[in-house]
Structures are given as C-alpha cells and as structure tokens.
Computed example of a mutant assay.
Amino acid sequence: MKAHFVPGNRIRLLECGMEYFPALIAAIEAARYEVHLETYIFADDETGRRVAAALSRAARRGVAVRVLVDGFGAREFPAGLGRDLRQAGARVLVYRQEVARLRLRRHRLRRLHRKLAVVDGTLAFVGGINVIDDINTPGQVPPRYDYAVTIEGPLVAEIHQSMHHLWRLVASATLNLRAPRLPVLEAAPRRHGRTRARFVIRDNLRHRRDIEEAYLEAIDGARREILIASAYFLPGRRFRQALAAAAARGVRVTLLLQGRVEYALLHYATQALYGRLLASGIVIAEYHRSFLHAKVAVIDGQWATVGSSNIDPFSLLLAREANVVVWDKGFAATLEASLRRAMATGADIVAADAPKRRPWWQRLLSQGAYTLVRAAVGLSRYGGGEYRE
C-alpha cells in the first residue's frame, strides 16, 4: 500500500548528535507512559551510557521502555548496556542476533538499520543518527555529520504502529512471547502544525521498494533542482537513469557524497560511477571535513526527506529502513540551508575530468570494488537487474 501524505504535523530538523541527543534524552526524561526506541548501533560510550541511563530512570518510574537493536551493529549491547536496562525493568530485543562464527549468508545482509523513537505516542524521532558519540571521530574534525527530525502530530501514529509491528515480529521470531505492557495512549495524536509528511519504510514483504519509489517519484517530477546527500551512494540503473534524465531536462542535480574512506569497498565502488554521473551533467561534491553520515534530500525547494536509508543496494534492497518525506517549503529551506553550509565549509567539487585523470590502478581498484558489490547483490537474490550493466 502506497504511503500517503498526512497533514497537521509539526516537524523540526535536528542537525547532528549535538542537537539530537539532548532532545531525545529530554523526551525520555519527560516520558509518562512509554518509550519505544530502535537503533542499528547502541554504543557503550559516553553518549550511549547517557541515553541508557535516561531509559533506565524511565523504566524505574514505571514507564514502559522497549529497546530494539540490530544484532550486528549493536552486537555488544545485550551483554552490556542491554543487561543494565533489563535490570531496570526495560524490555530489550535483538534483531537477527549474530553468533561468534561468521559465515557469508544472505540473511546476514538483512539488518535493522532504522533509527526511530516514539515517546508517549505523541512525539517521534526519525533519522539516521545511531546511539553513539559523534564527537569522538579520531582523525577528523567532529561531529559525524547527520540529521534527524522530531515529529508531533497525526503522522506519529503510523510510526508508532510500525515500531509495534516490528517488535511483535522479532518477539515471535526469538520466542520472546511475553506480551508487551502497552500504556493507555490517546487514540490519534492531535494536529500540531500544518506540515504534510509521509512515513516510508523498506522491508522484505510489502514495502520492498517504497523508499526508492518515493525518491524516483520526486526526481521524475523535479523541475529546478535536486540536492541529495548520501553517505553511501551506489544506486541501481533506474535511479541513475532518473538522475541523468532530470539533468538532461535542465534540472540542476547535486550529490553530496562521502569524501573520506570509511568502508573501502563502497567508497571505491561509488567512484566507479563518477565518470557516467559527471558526463550526464550531475555535480558531485565530496565532503572531507569529517565523516558524512547523512541520508537526506531536497527537491525543488519543497520536497524533502530525512531518514536512515542510504542510496545503495544494502539500504534500498536488503536492510530495514525508515524515512520521513516532508512536503513543506519552510522545512525544505531549513534542510537545504544546512546542506549548503556543509558544502561551503567541508566539501570539494569533483572536476568533470577527474575520473580520467586518476591513475590507472585507482580506476582498476574502483571497477573491481564495483564488481564485488554487484556480485554480493546478485548472491543476495534481491538485486534483480538493477546492478547489471
């Protein structure tokens, strides 16, 4: 079922952890009935301990606290902070918990990559920020650059329902069958503003391509400008063709991508696409100041998205992801201004002839990385023809 825009919301942009974590912790401290949190990483560092302490205090005062983490991204959590939360009365589940012996299997690529929280059924957080100290970025100027939003209004009900649904699925799969203690909440959050927004997810059943289709619909309708920031950018053929077609009809298309090497395979595979993207008239800016972790976009100054989904095969085809799509000129202007500042202070434009000027061994490395990613997607059986040349 296609997601729809829900009116009557108030949505506020949060830039990096310096804005996100104080807002999240304050909401947890004010919770009266329920805190429900999902995250890929829940690190045992200063930030993780602060969030865990707030959750423990909430559980001890009778708030229903549920925390769902990924079994790979937060593999140390169950025996550490997760144990402390359980002792405080919170419930903790792990999505596809990893075992000590690692083998390359298709299900290992299907991760919980969503970063969501709902407090008392009335306030939601959606974005790409893990529970980890983003100021601790050795070798770069902090912080790790990313975004989230707070949402108040009717859209919160859809986010809340999605989180409860996944909790029940994981509880059943792990034989954790004790029914959750559900608080008495208002039936539907009341209107808090005038912003229209959609909650869009990616899973392996009914919503396998919803996030990608939301992007493609907006790109196909773009008339003036497309600005996309993605930490990991390796789109399939349809997505690349849509961007090239937009540029061909006069739309200014700008990609803000990761300039530093964090995951070498994806970094060099992405560079294999630079020649074709630049030849299509697309502008590429590489962010070097710190690690870019953003997964956002602004189109024509009124369509915007913030979420957990990168534009790569692992996000678009395999992981569980969640984005909010906002139709609002004011919100889009705020996000665009933030991205422009990031580009002005920490990014370099890639020259049109840069791919041809790279040494032969770098070009070979990039093509080899791209071939390996395509092979991994093919082995997953989810890629179809999107990554065939």
Rank of each mutant, 00 (worst) to 15 (best):
M1S: 14
M1E: 08
A3I: 02
V6H: 05
G8I: 04
G8T: 03
L13D: 07
L13H: 06
M18L: 12
I28F: 02
A30Q: 14
Y33P: 00
E34Y: 04
T39L: 02
F42D: 02
E46P: 04
R49A: 07
A54L: 11
R57S: 11
R61V: 11
V65M: 08
R66N: 08
V69Y: 06
E76W: 09
F77Q: 06
F77G: 04
P78K: 07
G80L: 06
G82Y: 04
R86H: 03
G89N: 04
G89L: 09
A90L: 05
R96Y: 07
R106W: 03
L109M: 14
D120F: 03
L123D: 07
N130E: 08
I132D: 10
T137Y: 07
R144A: 09
Y145N: 10
G153M: 12
V156Q: 05
A157L: 15
E158N: 10
S162D: 08
H164Y: 07
W167T: 00
L169Q: 11
A171P: 00
A173F: 13
L177I: 12
L182V: 13
V184P: 08
E186A: 13
A188F: 11
H192E: 10
R194P: 00
T195M: 15
T195W: 04
A197I: 02
V200F: 05
L205E: 14
R206I: 01
R223W: 02
Y232W: 12
F233C: 03
F239M: 08
Q241Y: 00
A246K: 11
V251E: 04
T254Y: 01
R260T: 11
Y263V: 13
L273A: 01
Y274K: 02
G275W: 12
G281V: 11
I284R: 09
A285W: 13
V296D: 04
I299P: 01
G301P: 05
S315N: 12
E321C: 05
N323W: 05
V324S: 06
W327Y: 14
D328E: 09
M343E: 12
M343V: 13
A344K: 09
T345V: 15
D348P: 00
I349R: 15
A351G: 13
R357P: 00
P359Y: 08
Q362K: 15
Q367W: 13
Y370V: 00
R374M: 03
V377S: 04
L379W: 14
Y382T: 14
